[in-house]
Design a protein around this nucleic acid. Structure first.
Lengths: 204, 204, 204, 204
DNA sequence: GATGAATGAGTGTTCATTCAT
DNA sequence: CATGAATGAACACTCATTCAT
C-alpha cells in the first residue's frame, strides 16, 4: 500500500553554489501561491508573479527553469508541507480511529492557516499539470498512516478498497469546508460531523 | 434545503431566441469541452477553440458575448446535463437508499459516457470562475432529491448536516473513479463499494 | 545538369480567401529586406520589421507563419526575381559567350537597381537558414542557361566541371562589385573586365 | 597594391598584456567559432558561448570588452590565421603560377582542417560587422603575394585589375568546395580544376 | 449569420551586461 | 581572475477582441 510522489525530471535550478538570496525564492513562491489562489491557474503569468514578488521577470528564471517547473515545484512543496502537517504527532500505537482523528484535525489546522496553499493544491490537482507529477518513487511521509489503514483492513476494522478511493472519502469534505464560503462552514460542529462521516464511510 | 444556481449577469446561454445555426453552437461547445479537457483551462484560447470547431474566431462572438461568457455558459450547460442525467427515472416513492442508488448509477453512466464533460466541470469548479456562478436562483432539477434528503434527515434515516458537505461525501468518489487512471478503477465492484461508502457516510 | 530550388514545407500563409491588403505584404517584404541589408541578419527582429513596415507585429503573423517562414519566403522570392532578371531576353540560338554576356549584364543591372536585395541574398546564403531551402524540386528559370552550359561542355567550348563550381566562378565578382564600397568599383570597365575573367575561367 | 587591415577602435585582441589564463581565452574562442558555425551569427548569445566554453558569462567580459569586441576580435584572429596558413612556405623567387598554386593548396589544407573557422569567416564577411573592420592600416602577411601579383601585372603575365576583384576570382571556389555538401566536392580533381579556372581567370 | 484581417496588449523566455564577492 | 545573481530591455509569438464586408 503505497502512495508516493516523484518528479520524473529534476525541476528546480540548483547550482553547487547556493543562490545568495533565499528570501527571493520564498517571495516568488508566496507570490505564485497568492496569485493562483486569487486569479486562478489560468490567469497567472510570469510577469504578474514577478510584480507580486517584487523581482524582475528574469529573476524567476534564475530560480526555476521555466513556468512549468515553477508551478510543479511549488505544488510538490505544498504537497509535502501538507503531508508533514497532517502527520505531525502521529502515534502509531494509538487505535486507528484516533490516528485518523489526529490527521483529520491536523489537516484542518493546516488548511485554515494556509487557505491559499490549499486552493493552489486543488487547482493544480484538477489541471492537466497534475499528470506531469509522477507517483512511482516516494515522498513517503504519509506511509505510516497508509500502512495503518492497510493493517486496519486486514483486521477488518475498515473496508478493503483501493487507496485512492479511501483517501477520497477521507478528505472529501476538506475542499468544501475551505471553499470561498468557508466562514460559515468551518465551525467546530461541522468539522466534527464531517470527521464522523468520513469515518463511517471507511469503517466496516 | 436548497441548492440553487444563478448567474449574476445574463449569459448568452439563456437568450430566449437561439441563433439559427444550432449546429455551429454545438460545434463550439464540444470543441471547448474537448480542449479544456485536453490541455486545461489555462491553455484554451478562442482561436484554438475556433480551429477545433472549424469556425472563424469571430463566429464565436456571434454566439457568446466573450470568452468568459463562453466558459460559464458551457459550465452551466454541463451542470444541468449532469443533474438531468442523474435524475433520470427518479421515483420519489421508493426508499431513500434506492433513490440514492439510482442517482449514483445514473451519475456513473453519465461520467463514463462524457468523461471530458466531467473534466471540464472539475476544472471549472476549482477555478475562480466558479465564484461567478451564483446560487441565489435555481436550477432546481435536483430539488426532489434534496427534498428527499431533507425528509430523510427529519425521519432520522440520514445525518442532518449542511447540504454542501452531504453532497461532497455523496459524490466524492466520482472524480477519483474518473481520473486519468480510471480504466483500472471503474469496475463494477469499485463502483458498488464506493456507493456503499457514500451511503455509510450519510446514513444514521 | 540541374540547379533547382524548392522549399520542403509550404511556408507562406495562404488561405483560400486572399488577404485584403496586398500592399501590406509588400511593405513587410521591403521592410525586411531593407533592415537585413542595414543591420544584418543577426539583428533583424520582428518588431523592428513591423515598425519599418508600419504595421503591428501581430500583422506579420497574418502573412507569415513565423519569422523563419518570413525570412525564407523572402529569400525564395528574391532568388526567383534574380533568376528572372538574369534570364530576361535570353536567346538560346546565340553563341554561348553571348548568352553568358547577356546574363552577366542583366545580373549587374539587377544588382545595381536592387543592391539591398542582393545584400539580403548574400547574408541568407551564408547563414544556416540556407540549409533549410532545398534543391530537390525546381525553380527552373535558369534551366535553359544551364542546359546551354552543358552542351557547351559537350562541344568542348567550356570546361566540364561541377555545376556549383562553374556558377561560383561565373558570379564570383558580383558580391565584390556590389559591396559597400561599390561606388568606386561598378565602372563600365570593371564590369567588362570581370566578365572577361569569368569567361576565361570557364572557357576551354 | 595594398590590402591592409585595421580596426578603427582598439579591440581586446591587441591588448599587449595578455590575461594569464590563455587556456580560457582559447576555450571562448573555439566555443564561439563552433557556435557561429553551427547555429549562425543570429543565434549565438554570450551565455550560450559561456556554456559551450564551460565558463561563466561574466568571464567572457574579462577577456573581451563586449560581444561586438568578441566577434570582431575572433574574426581578425581567424583572418590572420588564414593568411598565415596561406603564406606558409611562400617562396618569392618561384614563378607566379607556382606561388599561386602553393597558396591555393595551403588554403585548401587550412579549410579542410578548419571548416568552421571558414564558416565563421564567411558569415562575418557578409554581415554588416564586416564594415567595422577597416582596411587603412595593415595585416600585411599577404603583402609579398600581392606584390608578386602587381609585378606579374607589370610583366603582363596576369591581368591588371582591382585587387578585390582579383582576389574574388582567386578564392571564389573555396566557399563552394567547403559548403555543407563539401564531402562530394573536395576531391583532388575538383581542387585541381578549380585552381586551373582561377589561374585562367587572372592570367593574361 | 459568418468571416478574415488587423491589432494593442500581453505571453513566456532570453538577452547583453553589471556587480558584489 | 572568476563568478553566480540579478535585471531592464528585448525577443518571437499569441491573445481576446473588433470591424468591414
Amino acid at each position: 500500500m503505497k502512495v508516493q510522489l516523484v518528479y520524473e525530471r529534476s525541476f528546480s535550478y540548483h547550482k553547487t553554489v547556493r543562490p545568495r538570496d533565499q528570501h527571493k525564492r520564498e517571495a516568488i513562491f508566496e507570490a505564485t501561491v497568492k496569485l493562483v489562489s486569487d486569479v486562478g491557474f489560468a490567469d497567472v503569468s510570469v510577469s504578474k508573479i514577478a510584480k507580486e514578488a517584487n523581482v524582475s521577470p528574469a529573476t524567476i528564471y534564475v530560480y526555476y527553469k521555466n513556468k512549468e517547473d515553477l508551478l510543479i515545484s511549488i505544488f510538490v512543496e505544498i504537497h509535502e508541507q501538507k503531508a508533514s502537517a497532517a502527520m505531525k504527532g502521529f502515534d502509531e500505537t494509538s487505535p486507528l480511529k484516533e490516528m485518523f482523528r489526529k490527521i483529520w484535525n491536523n489537516s484542518f489546522k493546516f488548511i485554515s492557516e494556509n487557505r491559499d496553499h490549499l486552493q493552489y493544491h486543488e487547482q493544480f490537482r484538477s489541471s492537466p499539470y497534475n499528470d506531469l507529477v509522477n507517483s512511482t518513487e516516494a515522498t513517503n511521509i504519509m506511509q505510516p498512516f497508509l500502512a495503518a489503514l492497510e493493517s486496519g483492513a486486514k483486521d477488518k476494522v475498515i473496508k478493503r478498497i483501493d487507496d485512492d478511493i479511501l483517501v477520497a472519502f477521507i478528505f472529501s469534505a476538506i475542499p468544501v469546508l475551505s471553499s470561498s464560503s468557508y466562514k460559515t462552514k468551518m465551525t467546530r460542529k461541522n468539522i466534527e460531523t464531517a470527521f464522523e462521516m468520513a469515518w463511517d464511510a471507511i469503517k466496516l
